[in-house]
Design a protein around this nucleic acid. Structure first.
Length: 270
DNA sequence: AAAGACACCTGTCCGC
DNA sequence: TGCGGACAGGTGTCTT
């Protein structure tokens, strides 16, 4: 479910509840996630939250010593509630705060994660080999161009590779390639510097706009206060198979690339 | 090193 | 109404 804008929206939602608070209890109801929730997660109890941040689609809660690493997977969500609220189906764990408030993780498909890290978090095996943040200074067309040399994989798979750039999931990959006029099946190594400049700008633009809209709710994404994201109404190609292209009127096509549905206009994208 | 397939799960929707 | 199959905002791991 969540791509970078949805994770960023979730972060902004839970941050005021967590920051500077002390974690009263970590209650694990169902440790069965992508990896079993480790027992050492209890080390969070009694510690104060120094900072909350995002790296790629991971959420990091920094404590006085060590911290939490969370991932929403495909169907995970974090909700702010009261510690006494009755848990629902697929509620996996709670972070109860001294304030009486609670951050609760729900994940039907169990692809999400809750792990412990010891400082520095950037050295964690899940984080250390990640590419740059798409909204950072170092991400630009020259970066894409450099990493793409000699690569024959489809450009859509290339920009979804977290070693290349993080946070570009299935929705925003299709959207940004449409905005840049690049066919998603084009080999990554056969794209000019200028076109990669346009693609980097499109990725940055679509992610920033999606964040402003609170993310994209297609089926079930809700933010930390239970509200949907409103970027779905701004989507240009995603899940618009057969509908007319907004630029030329030709029907939007769907094709599976790297086992993921991809949407594009065959006449506007080359 | 790079590319692709597969795995992990539940819920929903659609056709028969 | 039930059942099977396709599909879903991710990503680590294994095989070519």
């Amino acid at each position: 479910m969540p791509e970078l804008p949805e994770v960023e929206t979730t972060l902004r939602g839970i941050e005021p509840t967590l920051r500077d608070q002390r974690i009263a209890a970590v209650t694990v109801r169902n440790p069965s996630l992508r990896w079993p929730v480790p027992a050492e997660i209890k080390r969070a109890e009694g510690q104060r939250v120094l900072n909350c941040r995002r790296r790629a689609k991971y959420l990091l809660v920094e404590l006085e010593s060590g911290g939490l690493l969370m991932h929403l997977g495909m169907s995970g969500s974090l909700r702010v509630c009261d510690a006494g609220d009755a848990p629902r189906k697929h509620d996996h764990f709670d972070l109860a705060l001294d304030s009486g408030r609670c951050v609760r993780f729900n994940d039907p498909r169990r692809f999400g994660a809750l792990l412990w890290w010891d400082a520095p978090a950037e050295d964690h095996v899940l984080l250390r080999d990640l590419g740059p943040e798409p909204l950072s200074e170092v991400f630009d067309g020259a970066h894409l161009r450099r990493l793409s040399r000699g690569r024959k994989a489809a450009v859509k798979s290339f920009i979804m590779d977290s070693h290349v750039v993080v946070g570009v999931g299935n929705i925003y990959a299709s959207e940004s390639l449409y905005m840049a006029g690049i066919h998603p099946s084009r080999p990554a190594g056969r794209i000019s510097t200028a076109r990669y400049g346009a693609l980097a700008a499109a990725i940055r633009d679509v992610l920033q706009r999606a964040i402003r809209h609170g993310g994209t709710t297609l089926r079930d994404y809700l933010d930390s206060s239970g509200r949907p994201g409103y970027f779905a109404q701004e989507l240009l190609v995603y899940e618009r198979e057969g509908l007319p292209c907004f630029q030329c009127g030709a029907p939007i096509r769907r094709r599976v690339i790297g086992q993921r549905s991809s949407y594009f206009c065959a006449s506007c994208q080359r």
